[in-house]
Amino acid sequence: MGRAAVLGAGSWGTAFAKVLADAGTDVTMWARRAEVAEGISTDHVNRFYLDGIELPAAIRATSDYREALDGASMVVLAVPSQSLRENLEVWAPSIGAGATLLSLAKGIESGTLMRMSEVVRDVTGASESRVAVLSGPNLAREIALGQPSATVIACADADRAVELQRACATGYFRPYTNSDVIGCEIGGACKNVIALACGMASGLGMGENTNASIITRGLAEMIRLGVALGANPATMAGLAGVGDLVATCSSPLSRNRTFGEHLGTGGDMVSAQAATNGQVAEGVKSCTSVRALALRHGVEMPLTDAVHRVCHEGMSVPDAVGLLLGRRIKPE
């Protein structure tokens, strides 16, 4: 793939840059703040997002996006979903005409209800074959520590997906390829919302039966929405569906689960944000756009609706649980 530019130095962008470097790919990172870029380049650590983890000396970092993009044949987009468009509008003129664009962002854009690959194509004018997405059970700190994990790289161009696969395959990170971009993106967006619901239940003191029930019914919501948009339901049974869902709903490393747990214990949105160290819990905004997308396509998503009501309409977590339990009983 040649040189890779990783645009975004949060926890996942940093971890993925490490994966690329460990796989032998030449990597330059862009960080919004100069002090983050300097720490990565000079001290080989990102103290702000992955403190305590040594990064390969081969990774270079800069706060100048033009420098990061200069000559890059692979552009990794590692910023939050709701800020992807505004960032891309700045970066697009500096992106090479034939560069592969790989999105790590998971969400549905507010307002437009576009998936992230659609946003990328809309802003850059890139063909469908140049845009890929990566999704799976990829908790950043575990991967940065070299713990075994797998992921899915989805692209309409099978050869390009294989090139990306080779660029990030290591002894601890195993990428699979897929052509179902829609399925991977819907799985990635919806799992954050369901993780909020799992966290809320945990905050209320509920146990594993409840957690398993939420995960399973959340998966049903993901499949319904994905199929309505043209996804292959088998994708939801794989790493980008069940795999990502289980990891995000179950791990204390998940920002969405942590955010939901603080709401469940009676905290408000401000204190829940503080509990995630100010980092973005994508599901908080995506629950509204996922809900709107479901309404547009006539898809029933009661868990997503309940999460939206808690996060944006002032409903209490106990009332949301009561609303779900009070729904009409029916065949599974």
Rank of each mutant, 00 (worst) to 15 (best):
I40R: 01
G230K: 05
N232S: 14
E67M: 09
Y176H: 15
G71W: 02
A275P: 03
L239G: 11
Y49D: 12
I223S: 04
E128Y: 10
E185G: 00
R47M: 10
L139Y: 06
L295A: 15
V45R: 06
I215H: 09
V90Y: 08
A169F: 13
M222R: 09
A31W: 02
R174G: 02
V76S: 06
L113I: 10
G24A: 08
Q273N: 14
G98K: 15
D157Y: 04
G188T: 02
A58S: 15
G146M: 05
D51P: 09
A144K: 12
K18Q: 15
A195E: 04
T42L: 14
N87C: 11
M222Q: 03
A99C: 13
V307N: 08
A195C: 06
L84E: 04
D70K: 14
E86Y: 03
V284A: 04
V299D: 11
I59L: 08
A21N: 03
I108F: 00
G39F: 01
A220K: 13
N138T: 08
R224K: 12
R33E: 15
A31N: 03
A126H: 06
S271C: 13
R115I: 02
D70N: 14
S316R: 12
A201M: 02
L225P: 04
N87W: 11
V19A: 12
P148T: 01
T62L: 09
I329F: 12
S289R: 01
N232G: 11
T100K: 13
L88V: 11
I40D: 00
C198H: 14
A154F: 05
R3Y: 07
L293I: 11
A21Y: 01
C287M: 06
R174C: 12
E332S: 14
A17Y: 05
S11I: 01
A99E: 05
L204D: 05
E89W: 03
V246G: 09
F48M: 10
G314L: 09
G183Q: 09
P331W: 05
L219S: 11
C184A: 15
A57M: 05
F16D: 00
A240H: 13
C311H: 02
L88Y: 06
R328K: 14
L324V: 06
A126N: 03
A21M: 12
C198V: 15
V284S: 02
G205K: 03
E163R: 14
R166C: 12
A154D: 12
L239C: 13
V181C: 10
P56S: 01
I108L: 00
G266M: 07
V162M: 15
A78C: 09
D268G: 07
V119Y: 00
T276I: 15
R130C: 08
V242D: 07
I214D: 02
G8H: 09
A272E: 03
L7W: 08
V307F: 11
S81Y: 04
A126C: 01
P148L: 10
M222H: 07
E38G: 14
G207R: 11
L245F: 10
C249V: 07
A189Q: 00
T258Y: 02
V79P: 09
G218S: 13
